[in-house]
Amino acid sequence: MNIFRFLGDISHLSAIIILLLKIWKSRSCAGISGKSQLLFAIVFTTRYLDLFTNFISFYNTSMKVVYVASSYATVWMIYSKFKATYDGNHDTFRVEFLIVPTAILSFLVNHDFTPLEILWTFSIYLESVAILPQLFMVSKTGEAETITSHYLFALGIYRTLYLFNWIWRYQFEEFFDLIAIVAGLVQTVLYCDFFYLYITKVLKGKKLSLPA
């Protein structure tokens, strides 16, 4: 485990906790895309099926369990507990445009044509684009709460840190996974515009708002 991977995991975990706490403390999921959260629940479920087949470490297992459990808790809060505060009118991204192509691609480009491996590949592809409904919602409403911006930054920087982890692993362990690397690059590129706004606005104490 190198420092980039560890910091990536910590930032991913922070993002998940920031979102859970934001919704729970404010008793509201305003400004949060339920569709993106649903996609993340699908991502974790399909990727971590190896919890039942493969043990890597106590760290690995506990993180997976926390990610899966918190993604379901978030979906439950948005679609059940705090349903009245969910802004479905602005959450209009068509998720089938993400699920269908990534599902097809995972059948075509994978490391091994087995059910578990195809599901893992699907989860990698789907994760790379799962934030789009959330980014679409922010661009549609033209603004995001500061706490939501922190959530998005932590979530975006996690995969960026993983890119450095993969460079490290290629250099020192001769390990590389082209599927994860390409998807990770796509995922990071999707956040670039948001990173720019976060650094130029949110870090200077302003609310993230887009020009009309």
Binding site: R5, D9, H12, D50, N54, I56, N60, M63, K64, Y67, H111, D112, E117, W120, Y162, N165, E174, F175, F176, D177, L178, I179, A180
Partner: peptide
């Protein structure tokens, strides 16, 4: 070699 099958990351 491509060793992507070792899924030891999160």
């Amino acid at each position: 070699s491509v060793n992507g099958l070792k899924h030891d990351e999160l």
